[in-house]
Nucleic acid binder design. Sequence first.
DNA 1: CTATATTGGTTCGTAACACAAACTATACCG
DNA 2: CGGTATAGTTTGTGTTACGAACCAATATAG
Lengths: 143, 143
Amino acid sequence: MPHRDETEQLLLVDALAQSAFAITSILNRIAADNELSLTQLRMLAILRDRRPTMSGLASLLGLEKSTLSGLVERAETRGLVARGRSSADGRAFDVFLTEEGRRQARLIERDVQQAVLPGTAGLSAAERETLRELLERMQRPAA
Amino acid sequence: MPHRDETEQLLLVDALAQSAFAITSILNRIAADNELSLTQLRMLAILRDRRPTMSGLASLLGLEKSTLSGLVERAETRGLVARGRSSADGRAFDVFLTEEGRRQARLIERDVQQAVLPGTAGLSAAERETLRELLERMQRPAA
DNA sequence: CTATATTGGTTCGTAACACAAACTATACCG
DNA sequence: CGGTATAGTTTGTGTTACGAACCAATATAG
């Protein structure tokens, strides 16, 4: 049952959004269980393999930079992240996970896997691989 | 480059989470542009094709039911949603979109499509269809 | 049938979140 | 070098989110 390509695109966007809603619902719960907010959890996940500046992190999270000061401050107070002077710009700070933050991120990762895996049970191994590859392709910049 | 199946599963979960993070970042921005919070936006999207009770909606959003009273109250005050007595349980209220809420949801849907579509450009039409189908398969209950 | 347990939704207290405006110091460009 | 842009912070305001407590409706057990 293929659709016209324009329709197909819109259906894909909707499927991506629905998937994001479902995952977000799960993440909300896991965050609360770990005494984190959804945004704190997302920040930890993003920082697993990045060291962005404050405004870079704001952009990745889709938030205003004024929001980040408090967010990072509180995470810093909890020992989950630290800040360092950016070498690229004397005004900027990089944000990165501490060892404690890495531990917390791994715990969360485990919880997320446990919660999300059952939902993938209806797919064959080949389908799972295809889905993963296609999603990863979408995360890569085209250029 | 296939992996062991267990690894493949974990990579898929990670890809799903990364996708959700990226979409959520976009949704955060669109919500702010429409003077909504992320959670308000998610609620509108969920209510497009559902009429859940308050606690049903809390579950769909992954939030505590105590959070829903204020959330729905404010959306009701803005004329985006309304409540009706549930026929299934004399204590319960259903929540549903008003006409205004439907209009708002359509505007948001348009914005989301505009923002997300460019990210799908690197996939062929067939790949897009495959991705959509696999995502939809995941949203369906297996039973 | 009655007493007890459970549950749907609300209220309240508390901390956190998120935006916009304003600000300061640093960086950039003509 | 001077004017403009920008990274990050602070402040004000409204919203969000959890847990505890509560009340009324519903479910359950004897």
